[in-house]
């Protein structure tokens, strides 16, 4: 079973070899009450300790495939189910310092049954999460 929050502590880790980190990975549970085609996701904004990593620069790793934000619109038959996670891959040379970080995310979603003026809908979460090494 996953953690209750959208942002998962498990899965939050640096990318790249020790001493030459290239960035970090953030794991998110599906925040909506239903599974969704990836084409209904318009990217994920990430903020760590006040440093902003906008959706346009982040990639999503899901079921072994990596999607840039521009790739999501074509992923109409790739579905992110409830109870499953995606990994958001964020470039940051040097990675993050091991320890506790304040992490905020916005998953931008289109809900077709919401009035157009609300699209895309920001699904927000924030919590402390720990980089182990």
């Amino acid at each position: 079973m996953l953690e209750r929050s959208t942002i998962q502590s498990s899965g939050f880790s640096n990318l790249g070899p020790e001493g030459a980190r290239t960035g970090f990975r953030l794991r998110l549970r599906q925040p909506n009450y239903r599974g969704m085609r990836l084409s209904l996701i318009e990217g994920v904004d990430v903020v760590v300790d006040g440093e902003r990593f906008p959706a346009a620069d982040n990639r999503i790793l899901f079921q072994g495939r990596t999607f840039g934000r521009a790739d999501l619109d074509d992923a109409t038959e790739t579905r992110w189910p409830v109870g499953e996670t995606i990994d958001v891959l964020v470039d940051r040379p040097g990675g993050l310092v091991p320890g506790v970080h304040q992490v905020e995310t916005i998953v931008w979603m289109r809900h077709p049954y919401f009035p157009p003026q609300f699209q895309p809908v920001p699904m927000r979460d924030a919590r402390e999460a720990t980089i182990v090494l």
């Binding site: 239903r34 085609r37 084409s39 209904l40 619109d73 074509d74 109409t76 289109r110 077709p112």
Partner: peptide, 10 residues
């Protein structure tokens, strides 16, 4: 079930 009319941005 859902009928995702705005299935893609475009």
């Amino acid at each position: 079930c859902w009928v995702d009319s705005c299935v893609q941005k475009r």
